[in-house]
């Protein structure tokens, strides 16, 4: 008889394409990897509200404001779905937030870049969400059940995010000279960071091999990045945006675009905390978390008072 608590049996289930649920046996390393990845993903959604939030009050039309607000709200919601899914692994949201604020947990580096003009909202939707969705579509088939279910919901909701971003870019490229300049400026600043979102090359990615073996990750960093590049370059060209890379070209044989090497120094520098907005993003999160503390305490105090009253009247 096989031992249901063995790593070999676990791997067998994974290889059979089964989903793992919260109470099922899982190797410690699998659990740790999931906690790290899911909380990082949740933190990214929540911190990701900030660069776009920077433009809500300056959105140039009622429609634009509505769309942007709904989109940022979705991101908050997705953070929430992911925290909840991660909580099934026995870590509370309080702990996740502590890890984020202490700098122990990471979030996607892309959100450490500033949003400087209105076209940045377009670029974030089109490029950043575009890159995220490539990753997320793949994660719908991830082996951990609660993660996979959250991702299915998230992908369904996110389908408009990239389109609204591209719509902004297309509109601005058809607009005045000023608008075109803003759009190109946003493209220049967000193109490379969005390619970095997929992480280091497979050969330099320490966490990738196990994650693929356990089917947490279904495709590698480089595979996903290539998919994104291949679909995004024609979109840029269609609306007249220049890809800020002098050397990119289509390889006729493979059908894939080849691009210049990514600036990995910048990638590591931002991860290590020296991006333009690392400090600002965390400070913001900490500030409003602390300012909300008395509210959370009040809600809890109210419940406890009234729970006592109820018990006394029984």
């Amino acid at each position: 008889m096989h031992n249901e608590h063995s790593d070999a049996h676990f791997q067998l289930r994974i290889d059979n394409g089964e989903h793992i649920e919260a109470k099922d046996y899982m190797p410690d390393a699998y659990r740790k990897h999931l906690i790290r990845q899911m909380s990082q993903h949740a933190h990214s959604e929540v911190i990701g509200m900030q660069p776009e939030g920077n433009w809500i009050t300056r959105a140039p039309s009622l429609r634009a404001k509505q769309i942007l607000l709904a989109k940022i709200q979705d991101e908050g919601g997705h953070g929430l779905y992911l925290y909840s899914a991660a909580e099934t692994l026995g870590v509370s949201r309080v702990e996740f937030i502590e890890q984020l604020q202490s700098g122990k947990a990471k979030y996607s580096s892309i959100f450490n870049y500033p949003s400087l003009n209105w076209a940045d909202i377009g670029a974030i939707g089109w490029l950043v969400d575009g890159a995220a969705i490539v990753n997320q579509v793949s994660l719908q088939r991830t082996s951990y059940g609660p993660y996979s279910r959250a991702m299915v919901r998230i992908c369904k909701e996110e389908s408009f995010h990239q389109r609204q971003g591209y719509e902004i870019m297309a509109k601005m490229m058809k607009g005045t000279k000023d608008q075109q300049a803003m759009a190109q400026d946003a493209m220049n600043r967000w193109w490379w960071p969005s390619l970095m979102m997929f992480g280091p090359h497979d050969t330099d990615s320490p966490n990738s091999s196990n994650a693929v073996k356990w089917k947490i990750k279904r495709e590698t960093n480089d595979e996903l990045r290539q998919k994104f590049i291949d679909k995004t370059i024609p979109q840029a060209e269609l609306i007249g945006l220049t890809v800020p890379d002098k050397n990119f070209k289509l390889d006729e044989k493979t059908g894939h675009y080849k691009i210049s090497e990514i600036n990995w120094d910048e990638f590591h520098r931002v991860i290590e905390g020296h991006g333009p907005c690392n400090k600002q993003r965390l400070d913001h999160h900490i500030k409003y978390h602390q300012e909300g503390e008395w509210v959370r305490e009040a809600a809890l105090a109210y419940k406890q008072k009234h729970l006592k009253k109820e018990l006394q009247t029984v």
Partner: peptide, 16 residues
């Protein structure tokens, strides 16, 4: 203006 400034994530969504 309150987006991303709620006392808890749930409330952020409610105010939005």
């Amino acid at each position: 203006e309150l987006c991303s400034k709620g006392p808890i994530l749930e409330e952020d969504l409610a105010l939005t």
